[in-house]
Design a protein around this nucleic acid. Structure first.
Length: 904
DNA sequence: GAGCACTGC
């Protein structure tokens, strides 16, 4: 522990230690800024004197403009901080939690504006495990104050557990580094604070709306913030883009730690870096590493758009063409070249790279970003990385970047790797809890929306809901309740967003709210990480989300509405503090938050079918999966089931070794069942058709567009595709309907208009085309000959071979009709039902045998995407799986009236 | 007569 600036008593009290450190850090940062400002001013004055009256070249004018600009920004920031400090010293609530947006950080290039009036950028230690911290003095003032809005839900204000204006350390690190970062950054040379630069600021008229990113003004940021926004807005005319970018880079919180970060990376093979959104770690750290002499840096992202937009941002900052020295690599799109030295890629993409280069020899540094999200791929990447760090030795450096909440877990996992903390920038968000649990959170949400609309200052509202149905219900409820209310309140614009909403309609959430109106965005979890909605000041959080669960015993996945974790609640609240100070209304009690909600969400790895992961690990030579060092070990039952499945598919030998077939399957970016079907398709002469079906299945669920208003027309359009195949007997069902749908779209020349006419989602179809093209390209590699039924003697009239090939992959998903008219899985005997969305739902003659793509548990166990098969195929494609006994079962059900299921 | 949270290869 660093004891330099705290007393012994303070050390004994963790909380006051944290406060003391925060205060001392703030004071230090202010002093440093002031010193920098003084230097800059001196330089500027010199040059002004030098060039007075001279004719300047454009370049010289540009250089001076840059300095003026930098000075104005710094001056505004220092003024804001000084004001904040004064207010804090006066004992009031600290007003200076401004900070600007992202400075080009985690959420893509749109965030470019960010010259912060960064108030309490602070680094400090917090008691282990306590996420509280009300940045500086901010939340401290909040002894619970009841806030009763007219007409219903009653809230209690409380900042604890919420987002402070500035997030500080959430965990006690191996102390050396974090403390070093806090206490030794920058020499702080120079002396003599400059005069308060108010005169300068007045030169800029507020000009909201351009790159400042603060939209319609910025009440919380005070003078400093407004001046900053205005200053940035006036930048482009005066300043070269490159110079402006450099100024922005220098203003990011991380900029102060460049030297320390490089030193830490040089010292430790694995470094954990924690920093909030807006700290600049994603964009700057790879650049620092390059400057520090590392030759090639890879940085993983959980999402495609993030990889793309961050790469674009960094390319701009470095003044290079995207795809040259800075590039990105995502599925369907490799925007890199020989000369690429900073590469952003999705973590799934990195997993594929492991297949060809198991030790990632091309990279000197690997940065795993957003590790706190614990996505399936991130977790697997971390497991593999931990493995290769050992034998890459000094030739590989690893950085795990995470939000502040659970970074300590990564330190433990990587054998006590040190933690480096970088402050972020955010506006404060007041957290309000309900006094008592709400009986109906949807009603409560509706009432709260109206309460906010009626009683709170301007600012858009974001409501987090579990799914499309809730969104539609709430939208209807809000329309109903606002119908009678006239213009007195101002218009309430309702904008839904969820992933399967067509993109044209998604765009509505980005249209600026007209003056006097208020927008309320009804969103699923998509707004938690994937989409950032500008202008949101109020977040309403009912505290639920849909979450996937997996039962290894039955192999069934289900989607259940569950309470969110505290980490997710904090993330949601943060969505209110991106452009101004905000409020978050939690529709649950504070007690529930602290006592009932889990700290972190269950990692995806623990609630997923791992067949594909297991196949990947096996093909990387990791044989003993039960001993593989996962951050959180998945249930052994899940691993064993995966192994059994892979064995049944012929990917594993009886000895548990990967077979040649298994190795080929691993090359395909498909779940193993599907990969097996593709590999088998060669034997049936229909690889073209099978990859089409696979491509369509992999976007399934999102293919058919069914607006409530035109539900009947949409159903009819969909039925038309299955009718084309209905006469064919075995084979009728959803798989061939998907094939027919795709081929019909292809024959239209991939026309968008065709999609509208047939109630098909364009986005999904394009994605299916991408997947299909990728699979087509991989066929050679997997050694599957391209063949199509169109070349068959009958010209492709008999499509049964397609289903037969699919059966060769999905044979374990076969079901038979029982006498009672229900379906049971042939193996296992689980009762299942045809999903109402299937073409086979309520058909006149139920097929005796069906094959399903997936099983989902909702109100019942439903088979989704179902087709009729001939039971003889089962013995044909999987004699090792279906024994004589099963054949007996087959025979038994033949007692059924032949007309019911038998094809001609 | 039910439903597709969100990613990713």
């Amino acid at each position: 522990m660093d004891k330099k600036d705290v007393s012994a008593e303070e050390l004994s009290d963790a909380t006051s230690l944290a406060d003391a450190r925060t205060r001392s850090r703030q004071a230090y940062l202010r002093k440093r800024e002031e010193a920098k400002l003084a230097d800059l001013k001196a330089e500027l004055d010199d040059e002004r004197a030098l060039f007075a009256g001279a004719r300047l070249t454009a370049r010289e004018r540009e250089a001076i403009a840059l300095k003026e600009q930098t000075y104005a920004l710094a001056a505004a920031r220092v003024a804001a901080e000084a004001g904040a400090a004064a207010a804090a010293a006066a004992g009031g609530r600290d007003p200076a939690e401004p900070g600007a947006d992202d400075g080009g950080g985690e959420d893509g290039p749109a965030a470019a504006g960010g010259m912060a009036a960064g108030g309490g950028d602070a680094v400090g230690l917090r008691p282990f495990g306590e996420g509280l911290a009300s940045g500086g003095g901010a939340g401290a003032a909040a002894a619970p104050v009841p806030l009763v809005l007219p007409g219903g839900v009653s809230f209690v204000a409380d900042a604890v557990g919420g987002l402070p204006g500035v997030e500080v350390l959430g965990a006690a690190p191996p102390p050396s580094l974090a403390v070093a970062a806090a206490s030794t950054a920058g020499p702080g040379r120079g002396a003599g604070a400059p005069a308060t630069p108010r005169r300068r600021r007045s030169r800029f008229a507020p000009d909201p709306g351009r790159e400042g990113g603060t939209g319609g003004g910025d009440p919380a940021a005070g003078g400093g913030g407004a001046a900053t926004a205005a200053a940035v807005a006036t930048t482009p005319a005066a300043l070269s883009p490159a110079a402006a970018l450099q100024a922005e880079r220098d203003s990011l919180p991380i900029a102060a730690y460049k030297a320390e970060l490089l030193a830490a990376v040089a010292t430790y093979p694995v470094l954990i870096v924690e920093g909030e959104t807006g700290s600049g770690k994603t964009t700057q750290l790879p650049q620092y590493l390059l400057d520090g002499g590392y030759r090639c840096v890879a940085c993983t992202q959980p999402r495609r758009v993030a990889a793309m937009s961050v790469a674009a941002r960094v390319a701009t900052e470095r003044g290079v063409r995207l795809g040259s020295t800075v590039g990105y690599s995502i599925r369907f799109e490799d925007c890199t070249s020989e000369e690429t030295v900073i590469k952003y890629l999705t973590d799934g993409m990195l997993l594929r790279e492991f297949l060809s280069v198991p030790d990632l020899a091309a990279y000197d540094v690997l940065m795993v970003d957003e590790a706190h999200e614990r996505s399936l791929s991130t977790d697997v990447v971390m497991g593999l990385v931990k493995d290769i760090v050992r034998f890459r030795g000094d030739s590989l450096r690893v950085i795990i970047a995470s939000a502040t909440l659970n970074a300590a877990a990564f330190c433990d996992y990587f054998d006590g790797a040190p933690l480096f903390s970088i402050p972020g920038r955010r506006f404060p968000v007041d957290i309000l809890y309900t006094r008592a649990p709400e009986a109906n959170y949807l009603d409560a949400a509706a009432v709260t929306v109206l309460q906010v609309h009626a009683s709170q200052p301007a600012g858009d509202i974001l409501v987090f809901l579990a799914g499309q149905d809730e969104i539609e219900d709430l939208e209807a409820a809000l329309r109903e309740r606002t119908a009678g209310v006239g213009g007195a309140l101002g218009e309430l614009i309702i904008a839904p967003i969820y992933a399967s909403l067509p993109s044209e309609q998604q765009a509505a959430i980005f249209t600026p709210t007209p003056p006097g109106a208020r927008k309320v965005v009804l969103a699923t979890n998509i707004a938690e990480t994937s989409v950032t909605i500008p202008g949101v000041v109020y977040v309403i959080d009912p505290g639920f989300a849909k979450q996937k669960a997996y039962n290894p015993a039955t192999g069934m996945e289900s989607l259940l509405v569950v309470p969110i974790s505290r980490a997710a609640a904090v993330q949601r609240a943060g969505r209110a503090g991106r452009t101004a100070a905000g409020k978050c209304f939690r529709l649950y009690t504070k007690w529930s938050f602290t006592h009932e909600m889990e700290a972190q969400p269950v990692p995806e790895l623990l609630r997923s079918n791992l067949a594909q992961v297991v196949l990947l690990l096996l093909s990387l030579g990791i044989d003993n999966l039960l001993a593989f060092d996962f951050l959180d070990a998945p249930p052994p039952a899940t691993l064993l089931r995966s192994l059994e499945l892979l064995y049944a598919l012929g990917a594993l030998s009886p000895a548990g070794k990967l077979t040649k077939r298994g190795r080929l399957m691993a090359e395909l970016p498909l779940e193993p069942l599907m990969a097996a079907a593709v590999v088998a398709s060669e034997a049936y002469g229909c690889s073209e058709e099978v990859i089409t079906v696979c491509a369509m299945l992999s976007v399934s669920g999102a293919v058919w567009y069914r607006p409530k208003a035109k539900a009947l027309a949409a159903d009819a359009a969909r039925a038309a595709f299955s009718r084309a195949t209905a006469a064919a007997g075995a084979g009728r069902g959803d798989h061939l309907a998907l094939l027919a749908c795709y081929n019909s779209w292809r024959d239209s020349g991939f026309a968008t208009q065709w999609c509208y006419e047939h109630f098909v989602q364009v986005r999904s179809m394009r994605r299916a085309r991408d997947v299909r093209e990728q699979l087509d390209a991989l066929l050679d590699r997997v050694g599957v000959a391209r063949a199509t039924l169109a070349d068959a003697p009958d010209g492709g009239a008999d499509q049964a071979p397609v289903l037969k090939a699919l059966t060769a992959g999905y044979f374990s998903h076969a079901c038979q009709l029982t006498k009672a008219g229900l379906y049971r899985t042939v193996k296992g005997g689980t009762s299942v039902h045809i999903h109402p969305s299937s073409a086979l739902y309520r058909t006149e003659r139920l097929p005796r045998y069906v094959l399903y793509h997936e099983l989902v548990l909702t109100s019942k166990e439903y088979m989704r995407s179902v087709s009729e098969i001939d039971p003889a195929w089962l013995r044909e494609v999987a004699p090792h799986y279906y024994t004589e006994v099963d054949v007996d079962v087959v025979g038994a059900s033949a007692k059924m009236p032949r007309a019911l299921g038998r094809r001609a």
